[in-house]
Design a protein around this nucleic acid. Sequence first.
DNA 1: GTCTATACAGTGATAGAC
DNA 2: GTCTATCACTGTATAGAC
Lengths: 194, 194
Amino acid sequence: MFAEHGMSGVGLRAITTEAEVNLASIAYHFGSKDGLLEALFAQRATPIAQERLRLLAECNAANAKPQLEQILDAFLRPALTLGVQPQFGGPAFVKLRARLATEPETTTRKILSKAFDQSSRQFIDALIKALPQMPRAEVEWRFHFMLGAMFYTMADSGRIQALTNGRVDPGDVKRALHHMIPYLAAGFRSAPVA
Amino acid sequence: MFAEHGMSGVGLRAITTEAEVNLASIAYHFGSKDGLLEALFAQRATPIAQERLRLLAECNAANAKPQLEQILDAFLRPALTLGVQPQFGGPAFVKLRARLATEPETTTRKILSKAFDQSSRQFIDALIKALPQMPRAEVEWRFHFMLGAMFYTMADSGRIQALTNGRVDPGDVKRALHHMIPYLAAGFRSAPVA
DNA sequence: GTCTATACAGTGATAGAC
DNA sequence: GTCTATCACTGTATAGAC
């Protein structure tokens, strides 16, 4: 409901009615509306971070020097595909995550930080290993741009559908990954700027 | 105030007090809180779209076949630099725009569409001209990924600062463009996927 | 036409009964 | 631990002053 109508688009009364519980039970169990969001989010986010690290370990095991495309795939695939499965919140949760990523509120930032910072650091390290001649700061900038492409794909804002009469659809996650990974890999491999 | 504290983080009473006007004047002049946002946004967005098209016309005039990097610069520079000037709303407006871009509400989407779709279509056409061997859909996907990198940089979410101990700062727009344009250009030029 | 004061239904949060 | 009742506050609507 949060992802569909936004954080302020849905009231506690609508939630408690849907869940067939008393209004005050949210305050009791989660402290506040924000607390409910935080609990919801943590539950869904942890498996994504875990799956990322599992896939990263896999491609470290397979190759002495890990392949760039495999690392990107290990990072992006869980975020885009795992979330859409119903047990992880469905497509709505993917949108919610993208939304929180651009939210300026410090509370939501802490939630995201706690869930994903550790795995993100490991991926930056892996990227630096895969691109040994690249300055660290350059890899970090490119990681930032990758996050942007990922979140905007997850947000599924409808802009690119409108611009292309529906030809390009970020909601088609398989196709999105198919186009995204070679594009990002080429960017990561390009010569660092002065 | 909207960009700083979010759409629901600031009340009409706070706005009208700051502006030293009566509470009901917003409803009278703008219809609603959303209407106020829409009016605010349209005022600031139009100059950005205009400046984009002016720069695009410039690089069309300079080169028979326009250079990819110049087109990307013409698209990104007004969005990142023009917005931060005080007369266009300052850094807060840049953040606000990024925020609306990932908002699922249909009202905010229409606002963005109206302000930017026309210029975006012209840029996609220019990119296709600059990359004549590239399938149209591939250019469109890559344009979508570029939008993501741009919006996430504009949002200045603080994530990459946290991950890099402040070394990488998307708020430094000059440096952001410096790293972004070659990275995106390499992605755009890479071989299209099957 | 423009502005003002005020009322209204709905919000998240909370105190206190059981 | 779970409830009801109520709180202060929100965006909006409206009647009436100038």
